[in-house]
Nucleic acid binder design. Structure first.
Length: 445
DNA sequence: AGCACA
């Protein structure tokens, strides 16, 4: 065998009045260390939260014999040294004194270094962090990053006072469950002071935010393929208002056709163009109005509502960065309604005609995601749109059987005419009498 | 669970 090289660790240390402890709970305080050493002598200095995991510590006794007493005691004790129920391992330190560089982590500042602990720590969004810390004062900026210590965030407050109150209240606590998805494991916050006083946030992104400057440009990485912002700031969408809306459809049990979208969005004003596309396994659409105001009203009215009863085809709407869509071809997925197209008009009703023959039971035509992709099969006829906003459908579409649901939306300014029949539709089943169908968009003009 | 920001 080769000669014995220097062992990485020496298992017997020469005595020192400084003891090295490991396997401590990270919450361990200097007071607890003092308590632990007190029975054996006078503790003159301590240092906790040492090491990358902050689970090591040092205790310095006034006299070497006191340190020896403690080591000897626990060497033969049946009860191990414990802090907060955790067994701690101790040995002589290879240093002779504790050097207490009172730096960053100990000195109160306006910026907190937050470590998020837990299985799913990195699933905690910056918005959740913002919410949690905002309880203690205005949060100026947040940055998040990954280090060896795990998923961390720097949270900037106005001053050390608010930062300290947040630290005192949140250090060691878990993020309230109701702020996280049910399937996310508990996340604990560990908080120290950072040496920073002002974070530099260049972009609004999923990793960093500057709440003092909402109009800071958005990181290119945060803009998706459709030119859409996906950020949220203070619970509000960050993107500026636009005359073009991006609608994504959640829980799409039924195929949503261009015509259904046109009908729904026409309730708030002239729809100039619609483009539908597949995104992340779902369907999204860009809907263009002539002006921003109409789009704002439509967004406010439709956001979060379902096209069909039963929570089907829930709409999520945000503003697009687009102002004018370029529709290259009029087909079942995109349409420019500003350009009269006789050929299209002739093609289009055929789709509606075929679909209008019978209604189907909802179960018989669940959206399977392949209907569009195949290109061979026409999207099947969904049950009639039935959500509250349909009350705003223009009079030309009044043959649509509209049901008033639990959350009827009344457009704040211009409530379109209601025909008596619209109000009198019975039931909430979402399945219309057979033979009813949305009018083709061409009839609106 | 192994020595103090490298």
């Amino acid at each position: 065998m080769a000669s014995v090289s220097q062992p990485q660790f020496r298992y017997t240390q020469p005595p020192s009045k400084v003891l090295h402890l490991r396997n401590l709970p990270w919450e361990c305080t200097e007071e607890e260390l003092t308590e632990l050493g007190k029975p054996f002598g006078r503790v003159v200095n301590t240092k906790c939260n040492v090491g990358a995991n902050r689970n090591q510590a040092f205790i310095e006794f006034a006299d070497l014999n006191q340190a020896i007493a403690m080591i000897s005691y626990y060497a033969s004790s049946s009860e191990p040294a414990q802090v907060r129920g955790k067994t701690v391992y101790l040995q002589y330190s290879n240093r002779q004194e504790i050097i207490n560089n009172k730096t960053t982590a100990d000195v109160a500042g306006n910026v907190l270094l937050v470590t998020i602990d837990g299985q799913d720590a990195r699933l905690v969004s910056i918005d959740v962090l913002h919410l949690v810390f905002s309880a203690f004062g205005f949060v100026h900026k947040i940055t998040t990053f990954e280090k060896t210590a795990g998923f961390q965030a720097l949270v900037q407050f106005s001053g050390a006072e608010t930062a300290t109150s947040a630290k005192n209240a949140l250090d060691g606590r878990i993020i309230p469950r109701y702020l996280l998805s049910e399937n996310i494991a508990p996340c604990t916050l560990r908080i120290m002071y950072s040496a920073h006083t002002d974070l530099s946030v260049k972009f609004q992104s999923h990793r960093s935010r500057d709440y003092t400057n909402p109009y800071l440009s958005v990181a290119p990485s945060a803009i998706d393929g459709s030119g859409q912002f996906s950020l949220v700031l203070d619970g509000k969408k960050l993107e500026p208002e636009s005359n073009v809306l991006l609608a994504s459809i959640e829980n799409m049990q039924y195929a949503v056709t261009l015509d259904v979208l046109h009908m729904v969005f026409s309730a708030f004003g002239l729809v100039q163009k619609i483009a539908m596309f597949d995104k992340n396994g779902g369907v999204q659409a860009l809907i263009q109005y002539p002006d921003v105001q109409t789009a704002v009203v439509a967004k406010e009215a439709l956001e979060g509502h379902c096209i069909y009863d039963g929570g089907f085809c829930k709409l999520h709407i945000s503003y697009s960065r687009h102002t004018d869509l370029s529709i290259k071809v009029n087909n079942d997925r995109s349409r420019d309604y500003t350009i009269p197209n006789p050929a299209m008009v002739n093609q289009q009703p055929s789709i509606l005609g075929q679909q209008s023959v019978q209604t189907m039971s909802p179960a018989s035509h669940e959206y399977n995601g392949t209907q569009y992709a195949s290109g061979l099969e026409q999207p099947m006829m969904p049950p009639q749109p039935s959500a509250g906003w349909a009350s705003g459908v223009p009079a030309v579409s009044q043959s649509i059987p509209v049901q008033m649901t639990n959350h009827p939306y009344m457009p704040p300014t211009s409530m379109p005419q209601m025909t008596p029949g619209m109000m009198q539709m019975p039931g909430h089943g979402g399945v219309p009498p057979s033979g009813t169908v949305p009018h083709g968009p061409n009839q609106l003009y």
